[in-house]
Structures are given as structure tokens and as C-alpha cells.
Design a protein around this nucleic acid. Structure first.
Lengths: 119, 119
DNA sequence: CAGAATCCAAGGTGATACTG
DNA sequence: CAGTATCACCTTGGATTCTG
């Protein structure tokens, strides 16, 4: 790897894309199937209509998913992960593995740190 | 992989740790050497003293780095990545690779999307 | 159904000044 | 040198209401 600082900026850039509160949850829900707006709204627990709309628009803008409007009444809008989005989801797997492996360790260290502040 | 939603929450958890504006930059600077506070301040371009302090404290709390105070005048405080922090940095490499590979594609799609809104 | 628009609260961030 | 304290801003996100 030639340049560490460059790698950091690369990571920072994607964190700007997916580092918010909802993006990865939305992407995850679309892993293996197309979903409608309302389905996503129910699938992503706790998300507001506003945030779902914003998140989807941003993901569409970045080319991570496609938005398909079926001109009918009532309207039917479907969201599907692009290949690009799928590859991102794949590389996120490594992060998920890391988290699964070290979650308890982090939590324990955090408790220990907090407790040490009370002495 | 047994549970997609569980994996999403795992990822979300780490994004809560590193998804902010400065954390990965700080971790990256500590990749292969111990640094003092002032050195980090100069290394991470644009960070304020306040944000550097906060970031370092959080990383220490999570066990990703250690803070060593040398009782001297003037004070000398050194920050070193823990093994845990190093493993996180490793798994971030996959994200960096993904970003490096697809950065142009994303930027191009974004320009195309923005242009299509002006029709 | 799938949103757009508006208002508002809360937290993250930066600039500055001060301290052991 | 390595912070802490204070203030002020700005973005993020939630609740609510309205529309084609």
C-alpha cells in the first residue's frame, strides 16, 4: 500500500456515504430482494418517512440503488440494489465480522474505563 | 451468514464508533508509530484541539488505543494503537479498497444524476 | 401509496481564551 | 505541552401536516 493518508481519505469518503444513522440498514434490507417504499418503511425499524426518503435519494444519487416508478394508481415505487451497491454490501461484511468478533471486548473495556473514572 | 439484520446492527455499531468526522484519520495516523498529542494535532489536518481530545478519549474508552502520560515538565502524552485498534484498521482496508476502486464510478454517477435534475 | 414541506430540538463541530 | 471551558453555529434527525 503506497499511501496511508490516501487510504484514510478513501475510507472517510465512504463513511460520508454510509456513516449516517440509516444508510447501511436500508442497504441491508435490499440485500436479496426489491422492496417498495412502504415495505422499506416497515423493514427499517424506527425510521421516519423523511429520513427514508432522504436516504434513498442519496443512495440513488451515488448509484448504489435504482428507483423505479410504476405509473399506476396508487403509485408503486420500487427500490433495488445495483451491482455497485451489492459490492459495497460485500465489503461491509468484513466490518460486520470484526464487530461480531470484538463487540464484547469493546463493551467490557468501556465498562472498565467508565468504572475507573469513579474511583 | 445466519442473520442479515443482526449483521446490519453490528455494522451500525462500529459506524457509531468510527463513523464520525475524525476517528479514522486519527487511527490511520497511528498505524505504524506512537505519536504525541501535538504530533497528532499536526498530522490530522484541520482538526481542532477540542475534537482531537474528544476523539482520543473515545478511542481510549473503546480500547482502540492507549494513552500514556509521562510525568515530566512539560508534560508528555503518547498515544499508541492497541492490537484491537490494529485489527480494526486492517478490516477497514477492505473499505479503502472498495472506495479506491469505485470512487470515480460514484462521482460520475453523481454528476449524471445531478445533471438529469436540470433537464 | 409515496412522497414534499415545514417546524423544531439536540447534538456535533469550530473558534477562542484560559490553565497546570 | 496538553489539555479544559465557554460560546455560537450548523447539520442531523424527528414530528407533523399536506398532496397527486
Amino acid at each position: 500500500m503506497p499511501d496511508d493518508e490516501e487510504a484514510c481519505r478513501e475510507v472517510r469518503q465512504i463513511l460520508g456515504l454510509i456513516g449516517d444513522k440509516w444508510t447501511v440498514l436500508v442497504i441491508g434490507c435490499l440485500r436479496d430482494r426489491t422492496l417498495r417504499f412502504g415495505e422499506l418503511h416497515r423493514a427499517v425499524d424506527g425510521i421516519s418517512q423523511r429520513m427514508l426518503t432522504r436516504t434513498l435519494r442519496q443512495l440513488e444519487r451515488d448509484g448504489l440503488l435504482t428507483r423505479t416508478v410504476h405509473p399506476s394508481v396508487p403509485p408503486r415505487v420500487e427500490y433495488t440494489l445495483t451491482e455497485l451497491g451489492a459490492t459495497l454490501l460485500d465489503s461491509l461484511t468484513y466490518l460486520a465480522d470484526w464487530a461480531a468478533t470484538h463487540r464484547r471486548q469493546i463493551a467490557a473495556h468501556r465498562r472498565h474505563y467508565d468504572a475507573s473514572l469513579l474511583e
